[in-house]
Amino acid sequence: MNYRSVFDIIGPVMVGPSSSHTAGAAKIGRVARKLLGTVPIKAAVTLYGSFAETYQGHGTDVAIAAGLLDFDERNPNLPDSLSIAEKQGMQITFTADKQTPVDHPNTVRISLTDGSEMMEIVGVSIGGGKIEINEVNGFSVSLSGSNPALLVLHHDRYGAVAEVAGMIATYEMNISYMQVSRKQKGSLALMVIQTDEEIGDDLVTGVSHLPNILNVAVLT
């Protein structure tokens, strides 16, 4: 069962025109922003497949910029995101890569920096506003988009995973899938945690204040 809630069908509430090319794109942009954890000053967006062909007509560029501004897919300012980003001094470049083959037609790579930290993700908009994230800073992840998920960037230290899992348990939530990736022992690592229940703001704030945690993003 890919669709779990009646609000997957009567919803999402979003700025048009396309659940996959607009709402999904905004969500991917926002995940990148959340994982960077700060305000980006520069973002390089590479669009592939169908995204590369029709991004201007669908407002995919506008939607991704909105996500980078931390707007959600229903934010009424979404259509004005490009000029808002410019005013804030956020430099966003869009490149349509029509040559590189991709597994899914709606794929985008976003690299961003706040001047010191870098973040790069690859996201896919799979339809109906649902997204998958395939790559985070070179870590390959697999997130189906069917369940809510937490992406937690953290230092690879003992207890980090247990603390996050413990906090999820205090919210009486069930973990349905979990993946931990790291480049090498003791370096930066990424936890991907899917839950049966929706992930609230309280939990996100709680997790982000745990020791060894750098940044947290949510996929709904």
Partner: peptide
């Protein structure tokens, strides 16, 4: 409204949001 980047509720998608 959807095509003009207005706010709608997808039912079940944005492209078919008018019928319901």
């Amino acid at each position: 409204v959807n095509a003009a980047m207005g706010t709608i509720c997808a039912t079940p998608t944005a492209g078919s949001a008018g019928v319901v």
